[in-house]
């Protein structure tokens, strides 16, 4: 049985637009669950014993909390902003800790090597100083003033630009990225990674986007994000140890890894250990 700190969080369990009347049998935190539609288009998520969980339908996905929600599902105000296209990217199953999937999403230093000629390219490898904080008032991890040179930052970008990013972790298995929006200076494109922990070493990842981009066909937007994430998967399935080490000793962070350091510290202090290991091997 997992701890309350783990059970009282919100988790994505289905993409609403792909959940048919037959429902979806899946897993959450190592236990079987069933997701389907109850009356009046209300999503329903049930444990194996038939017990219904708290659910929400938000950001294109169905969310469930297996315990008692410690707080309301996090807010993404941009999701309701007129003029944005909301992109359901779909699901990718990854044989890794859900926490490693989130941590990788917070990392920019890998762009030139893993997303070569798309999100980064040598010799533009330097990660400048940026700000990281655990915002106590909202209990979220934030990284701001992150700058990086990108050959093709988005489907809508024509050529290399220096992109500015902000990263936000509003829940242990969710990461939200805000990035410079080429066609709309002053606004931020929103790209999220919603991670469903199936097991400590297995997850389903649901990227979702809210973009200012009226030009690019939806298929291309989805393909772009899938390409990026499949490149990430080749990393995530080959990291050792499989569980994310929350204690120092196993891995060597540098200044470019401060978001990861804050994320691990934040997980540890809230007792979030699903997909983590506490003892340095």
């Amino acid at each position: 049985m997992t701890s309350e700190a783990i059970r009282n969080e919100w988790y994505p369990v289905a993409l609403a637009s792909q959940l048919g009347p037959e429902g979806r049998d899946t897993r959450l935190l190592g236990e079987p669950i069933r997701v389907d539609w109850a009356a009046q288009g209300r999503p329903r998520v049930r444990a194996a014993d038939g017990r219904e969980m708290a659910t929400r339908l938000r950001y294109g996905h169905i969310w469930a909390c297996p315990g008692t929600p410690s707080r309301e599902l996090f807010d993404i105000p941009e999701a309701d902003q007129p003029g944005r296209r909301l992109v359901d990217v779909g699901v990718v199953r990854v044989k890794c800790s859900p926490l490693r999937a989130v941590e990788n999403f917070l990392d920019i230093a890998h762009f030139p090597f893993v997303h070569t000629d798309i999100l980064g390219a040598e010799p533009h490898t330097e990660v400048g100083k940026y700000d990281v904080a655990i915002r106590e008032e909202v209990d979220e991890v934030w990284a701001t003033k992150v700058h990086f040179y990108q050959p093709q930052a988005a489907k809508s970008a024509a050529g290399g630009i220096t992109t500015e990013y902000m990263y936000r972790v509003p829940a242990p298995t969710v990461s939200i990225l805000y990035k410079t929006c080429p066609p709309r200076p002053g606004e931020w494109d929103v790209i999220t990674l919603f991670v469903q922990p199936l097991e400590e070493n297995l997850c389903e990842v649901w990227p979702w986007m809210a973009l200012f981009d009226d030009e690019t066909p939806m298929t291309d937007l989805i393909h772009f994000q899938q390409t990026i994430f499949l490149q990430d998967r080749s990393i995530l399935e080959n990291q050792l140890p499989r569980l994310l080490p929350l204690d120092p000793g196993m891995e060597i962070p540098t200044r470019a890894d401060l978001t990861s350091v804050a994320y691990r510290r934040w997980l540890k202090r809230r007792g979030y250990t699903y997909g983590a290991q506490l003892v340095a091997a």
Partner: peptide, 11 residues
């Protein structure tokens, strides 16, 4: 295993 983040060096 890369000591930085545990990635397999054989990749």
């Amino acid at each position: 295993r890369c000591p930085h983040r545990g990635m397999r060096l054989s990749h």
